[in-house]
Structure formats: structure tokens, C-alpha cells
């Protein structure tokens, strides 16, 4: 092999650069089965620990509540008592004697309504408070006081105002979930980097374009934090509100079960409430992740 050595003569010579050949490597394909095995392993790592914990807790519960005279039913009895409710969630015998699906869907409808209203109003107010110093000075103290009022404290007032259970429940959802949305949106708007505002100024975006093209995308991570807290709060509030207003809904189902001493049904309903709350939270989180995928700072 011939090597050409470059000598630097005096101060002027430059070392010659040798160009290395570029070799394109074809990426090695892993065998399919191996990929599946790895996927299965990864899933197992995440799924098995919670399953073990749940099994252990159920066992403890069974052992504690099994003896005669226990106040609460053991899981085996819960399952036996609520078989019908679990396997047929769609029955409808009129009145409030319906399957759990109908109760949950009534509650979800109220939440969807109240939460949508509070999302729209909350983002609008948040933008106002974040953008205008005077709006913040005027409104922020009010928000700080109002947001500490517990959801149910609003219910009597809204019943007096609307004279009907349905709009009152929706109002309670609205007033409970709006505060974190307002506050987080305002923080997001206030944290928009000056650079983005400068870009908008140089390009001469009008206020409407600035709102749609800069503000909302830039504040989206904050807005979705607020929306996520909001959806959790509204699910908390709906169950409590429905216990008081009655009618079809998972909250009243629980209250009704308590009145007729069906403790097993209460436990089943709590289980469903938890699952639905979890799904709602994940739904908003997933939506936020999808919408803000490009917003990450770099």
C-alpha cells in the first residue's frame, strides 16, 4: 500500500486530505420472531407488576371480609351479587332501573357538555388574562377566590337559578373545571418567548393570525395541562352532583344502591367510576400529546 506523507514545508504547505470511500451498509433485519418476543417481554414487564399487586390486594380483601359479620362484602360476594349488572350493562326497565352503561353514558353526557363549555370559556378567558395586564389585575384576584369554592357549594345556588337538575349539574361541572384551564392557559400565554412575538411583529401578523398561528400552538402544552386537570375535576364533581340531583347517572346509582343497602353494587360502580376517570384523563393526555407534538422547545 502506498502512503503519501505530506511534509509541511516552511509555513505555507497544507496537508493533503485523503477522501475515505463511503460504504453504504444495508441495515440488518432482525428475524420476525425475535421482534415479537421482545415486544412480548416489554409488555410483560409493564403488565405483570400491577396484575400481581391487584391479585394480592384482592386476596387480602377476601381474607379480611370473609368472616361472618363483616360490614363490607368480600370480592367473591361482590362478583356474585353483581353478575347481572356486569354481564348485562344495557338493560332498560324504565325509570332509573337501567344498566350501568346507561348510567355512565348519562354522566358522561353531562360532563361532555359542561366540560366543553368550560374548555372554550376557559381558554378564551385565559388568553385574555395572559395577554392583557389590566385584565389580569382585574380578574386574577377574583379567580383566585372563586376557584377555592368546593364544587358542591355551587349546586344549591345553581338549582335556585336554573330550577332544574340537568342544567345545574352541567353548571357545576363547568364552574369546577374552568379554573385550572384559565390559569394554565394564562401562564402559557405569558410564557410565549419574546422571539416568537418578534417574528410575528416583523411578519406583521394581525391579532387574529397571531392568536391562531403563534399563541395557541405556543401555549398548547400549558393549555393541555389545564384541560387535563379540568377533566379530572369535572369527573369528580359529576358523581357528587348527581347524588344530590337524582335521575339517571352513575352518581345517583351509587346513592340509590346505598339507600337499598346494595353494598356490592356500590363497589362495582366505584370500580367503573375509576376506570372511566382514568380513560378520560388518558384521552385528554393523548390528545395533548398529538396536538403538541411539534411544540417541544429545542
Amino acid at each position: 500500500m502506498n502512503m503519501t506523507a505530506t511534509k509541511i514545508e516552511g509555513e505555507t504547505a497544507t496537508p493533503a486530505a485523503t477522501v475515505a470511500p463511503v460504504v453504504a451498509l444495508t441495515p440488518k433485519r432482525r428475524p420476525r420472531t425475535e421482534a415479537y418476543a421482545r415486544m412480548a417481554r416489554e409488555t410483560a414487564v409493564r403488565v405483570i407488576p400491577p396484575l400481581v399487586v391487584i391479585a394480592l390486594l384482592t386476596l387480602v380483601w377476601e381474607l379480611v371480609c370473609r368472616r361472618a359479620g363483616s360490614a363490607l362484602p368480600p370480592p367473591s360476594k361482590v362478583f356474585a351479587d353483581t353478575r347481572e349488572l356486569i354481564f348485562d350493562p344495557f338493560f332498560d326497565h324504565g325509570g332509573i332501573d337501567k344498566g350501568l352503561f346507561w348510567h355512565l353514558s348519562a354522566s358522561l353526557q353531562r360532563v361532555a357538555f359542561g366540560y366543553s363549555l368550560s374548555a372554550v370559556a376557559g381558554i378564551a378567558l385565559g388568553v385574555l388574562v395572559g395577554q392583557s395586564v389590566w385584565a389580569m389585575r382585574g380578574l386574577d384576584p377574583l379567580f383566585q377566590v372563586l376557584r377555592t369554592i368546593p364544587p358542591l357549594a355551587w349546586l344549591p345556588l345553581s338549582l335556585a337559578a336554573f330550577r332544574d337538575g340537568q342544567p345545574s349539574a352541567i353548571f357545576v361541572i363547568f364552574i369546577t373545571s374552568i379554573w385550572p384551564i384559565i390559569i394554565n392557559t394564562a401562564v402559557g400565554i405569558r410564557n410565549i418567548p419574546q422571539d416568537y412575538r418578534n417574528v410575528a411583529a416583523v411578519v406583521q401578523l394581525n391579532p387574529l393570525e397571531f392568536f391562531a398561528k403563534i399563541m395557541i400552538p405556543a401555549a398548547a402544552p400549558y393549555i393541555f395541562t389545564g384541560l387535563r386537570i379540568g377533566v379530572g375535576l369535572s369527573w369528580l364533581a359529576i358523581v357528587a352532583a348527581e347524588m344530590l340531583i337524582g335521575g339517571v347517572g352513575i352518581g345517583f346509582f351509587i346513592w340509590d344502591a346505598w339507600n337499598s343497602s346494595h353494598i356490592s353494587e356500590i363497589i362495582l360502580a366505584l370500580f367503573y367510576v375509576g376506570i372511566v376517570g382514568f380513560v378520560l384523563d388518558r384521552l385528554i393526555a393523548g390528545l395533548g400529546k398529538f396536538v403538541t407534538r411539534g411544540t417541544a422547545q429545542n
Partner: peptide, 18 residues
């Protein structure tokens, strides 16, 4: 007032990440 007749190249690029 700012305008496109005096476009700025900012130090930290200021591209909109989304």
C-alpha cells in the same frame, strides 16, 4: 414599527417549532 421591509435574522434562529 416592525415590518417585513426590515426583516430580521435572529441570533437564536427563532423558527416556530410547530
Amino acid at each position: 414599527s416592525p415590518g417585513p421591509d426590515r426583516a430580521v435574522v435572529f441570533q437564536n434562529h427563532s423558527l416556530l417549532p410547530w
